[in-house]
Design a protein around this nucleic acid. Structure first.
Length: 739
DNA sequence: GGTTCGACTATTTTT
DNA sequence: TAGTCGAACC
């Protein structure tokens, strides 16, 4: 049967069909925003299976987020009558966890090893520094955490890190100590999951051969987001004899995670190293109207070194992009709220409207305006379920049941709820643990004298928990721990404890849910508390939903990063100002600026029908009023695509000079040095002057008009005379010559 | 052992 | 401005 006549691919466009029906070979699919990427990925799997020469067990599909993995499974289940159970579909971390559990001995880990999330890792590092008596001013824990993760993500163990200066040498030493601590405590951080798994496959030939033989087709989602180690991991798995087919889908233009190690260069490397003959481009967009796509294309064209791609659509041009200039951030927010209300009056669903911004701090003004207007809204970001304090406490007790040597968990709850074990006792215990080279838990018997008693109680509590829960089902186990640990009583006594108690109950529900899903899967439980360990891994690997009432029809607020992969009928993109978007920390560096531009590209392509872009002349930031010129990205949108809702002022001094030859000094965006707002009342200044104009003054020399206010005989302008400083001059008094 | 006060800091974030 | 964190204090 010819490929195109198969019902599986009949509804796909030509490029999609080509991608889906490729023979078993390596492939790179450049999938533009809204081009049906997930559809291609899932249909490809279905296609492979329908061809009859591979079984579900031969498929490995890798994603970055649990959400993406779940969606893939859901779509596949809808598409295929078969069960997806034999397939390995999951996140890099989830799959590595699975491999490490299955081969824990070969990987040098106990079966019930625990997974540290970022917060746990940071706590572990702080504890390490304390034990080693190291000044955390000189080695800031966060920075050290970043250093360690960066090494691991580059595939480097301490002995492989090149260190020339003393500072780096010292950090490498701490990396080594940190590793030893983790090993002692049987815990593994996120980066370690990947590195350990990579090393397992690399060093253990039978294991490697087994998986290389099993996975005939490896499919990768969001390939542009892979880091060095993830790419190596993929190469290793695909590098059997015969090799598996690597099917990578990605979009270099949507690479916005370089700051956390993503390596866009992997796409080029893949193309070269795997001799990809033909990169398939999915350029037909099914999401946005033409004007929006044209704007996105025009913006991203300013980036160098792209793999190249141009989005197009069959739907019409649609509406122009609306641009609004506000006096200050509050006005911007008010205007957005007015427009939102108008849209809702016209019948739009609030949930189809998104308010996007570059950084979280910007949400405050918007929330305030929405709240005042009584519009329901939902903010993405912030604490997630498994990151909540009370949940973390409960999990710490559960972790001690699974593994009492988990010092992070031990330290977290040894005195919570308080049971008279103060900092002194813990310090003494840490000292003992160090001398005897044991975990905190195991060090308790070594302590003699008075501090032993309350610590002894705690150890007995953990022992009892282990014993009493051995025969319990997971939800009952959790329930028992909440009571026996005193957590429930603690929050019951607390005034504001109501919500926390509800969350604890929610944890029991989550456990029940987990058991139900685990039973649906085949995996039988082997050791005691094995299911508990699985549940704990699940809690670490999947921090859960981003809060909030989902049911309600609410306007969606989020950062541009968080919006990646989502789409909305109407998108408001606010704060399009130099220093904010592009962010000032990225402006100096060409690569940073290109990543900001990709971020802008992502933002624009979120909109289906209507896109609003706004900026404010002044904005409250860090307790200071700051004046930012409008973003250069606005200038990159062709004029024919936009409609200014406010008069379009020419770009001012700072705007012109911030690009090209003149780099403003650092801090140029602070209130002192930059451009105050041009008041609406004096947009056209007397005498044919305008903001941004170069003028000459008899005493101060040449300068640029950067602001104006007042009218009539009161009209004043602010001029930046360079060396002579910034002055306010009365137009009626000062003699200014345009030049 | 818990509270309060002042200093400090301030993109983007999944696993 | 506002939120977090650590140290001093009760």
């Amino acid at each position: 049967m010819p490929a195109t006549s198969s019902p599986l691919v009949a509804h796909l466009n030509e490029a999609q069909q080509r991608a889906v029906t490729l023979p078993a070979q390596h492939a790179l699919i450049l999938a533009g925003a809204g081009s049906g990427k997930t559809r291609v990925l899932t249909t490809r799997i279905a296609w492979l299976l329908s061809q009859g020469d591979c079984s579900p067990a031969n498929i490995l599909a890798v994603t970055f987020t649990n959400k993406a993995a779940k969606e893939m499974v859901a779509r596949l289940t809808a598409m295929l009558p078969i069960n997806t159970r034999g397939m390995w579909i999951g996140t890099f971390h989830g799959l590595c966890n699975r491999l490490l559990r299955a081969h824990h001995r070969d990987a040098g880990l106990p079966q019930l090893f625990q997974i540290l999330d970022s917060a746990d890792q940071l706590a572990a590092i702080k504890r390490l520094l304390k034990t080693l008596n190291i000044d955390d001013e000189k080695f800031p824990p966060r920075e050290l955490q970043h250093f360690i993760n960066a090494q691991k993500e580059a595939g480097l163990r301490p002995e492989a890190v090149e260190a020339w200066d003393d500072y780096t040498k010292r950090r490498v030493e701490l990396y080594r100590e940190y590793e030893a601590q983790c090993q002692r405590e049987s815990v593994v951080d996120f980066a370690e999951l990947l590195l350990r798994c990579y090393e397992l496959l690399e060093r253990n030939e039978p294991v490697r051969r087994h998986y290389q033989g099993r996975f005939r087709h490896i499919l990768v989602d969001e390939f542009q987001d892979t880091n060095v180690l993830q790419y190596r991991w993929l190469k290793l798995l695909a590098g059997g004899e015969p090799p598996a087919s690597l099917f990578c889908v990605g979009d270099d233009d949507q690479s916005i995670y370089a700051f956390r190690g993503a390596e866009v260069g992997n796409m080029r490397d893949f193309e070269r190293e795997f001799h990809i003959q033909e990169v398939i481009r999915l350029e037909q967009n099914y999401r946005s109207h033409g004007n929006i796509l044209d704007a996105a294309n025009a913006i991203i064209r300013n980036n160098a070194g792209r793999l190249g791609k141009n989005l197009w659509t069959e739907s019409g041009a649609g509406e122009p992009i609306r641009i609004f200039e506000a006096f200050e951030d509050k006005d911007e927010a008010r205007w957005i709220v007015d427009e939102v209300q108008q849209l809702v009056r016209e019948g739009a669903l609030r949930a189809d409207i998104a308010l996007l911004y570059r950084s979280n701090a910007q949400s405050r003004v918007l929330e305030h305006a929405l709240f005042s207007a009584g519009i329901p809204y939902r903010v993405y970001g912030g604490l997630r379920f498994f990151e909540r304090q009370e949940i973390k406490h409960a999990l710490a007790y559960l972790r001690l049941i699974a593994n009492p040597d988990d010092d992070t968990a031990f330290a977290r709850v040894v005195n919570f709820p308080t049971r008279g074990i103060g900092a002194r006792s813990v310090e003494a215990l840490q000292e003992a643990a160090r001398t005897w080279n044991t975990s905190l838990y195991a060090a308790v018997p070594h302590l003699s004298g008075k501090p032993g008693t309350s610590l002894g109680h705690f150890v007995r509590l953990v022992e009892n928990l282990r014993r009493d829960t051995a025969k319990l089902q997971l939800p009952e186990l959790v329930d028992h721990v909440l009571d026996a640990s005193g957590l429930r009583a603690h929050y019951q006594a607390e005034r504001e404890g109501r919500e926390r108690l509800e969350n604890l109950d929610e944890l029991i529900a989550a456990a029940a849910n987990f058991v139900a899903e685990a039973q649906a899967d085949t995996d039988a439980l082997a050791a005691d508390h094995a299911l508990l360990a699985d549940f704990l891994a699940h809690a670490s690997l999947e921090a859960g939903e981003h809060q909030a009432d989902q049911g309600m029809d609410a306007v969606q607020l989020m950062t541009v990063h968080a919006a990646k992969g989502l789409e909305f009928d109407a998108v408001f993109l606010s704060g399009l100002e130099e220093g904010l978007f592009p962010h000032e920390n990225s402006i100096q560096d060409p690569d940073g600026l290109e990543e900001e531009r990709r971020l802008m590209y992502v933002a624009v392509t979120r909109a289906r029908k209507r896109l609003y872009i706004s900026f404010a002349q002044s904005r409250m930031l860090h307790g200071q009023t700051r004046y930012h010129p409008r973003s250069r990205f606005l200038e990159e949108i062709p004029e024919g695509l936009t409609r200014w809702l406010t008069p379009q002022h020419p770009r001012s001094f700072a705007q012109e000079s911030s690009r090209g030859f003149y780099q403003p000094p650092r801090g140029a965006f602070s209130s002192r040095a930059a451009t105050p707002p041009a008041p609406k009342s004096t947009q056209e200044l007397p005498g044919g002057l305008r903001i941004g104009q170069l003028v000459a003054h008899a005493r101060f020399g040449k300068g640029v008009i950067i602001a104006a206010e007042g009218s009539g005989s009161d009209a004043r302008v602010q001029i930046n005379f360079g060396d002579a400083g910034v002055k306010w001059l009365l137009l009626g008094v000062a003699k200014l010559e345009p030049c």
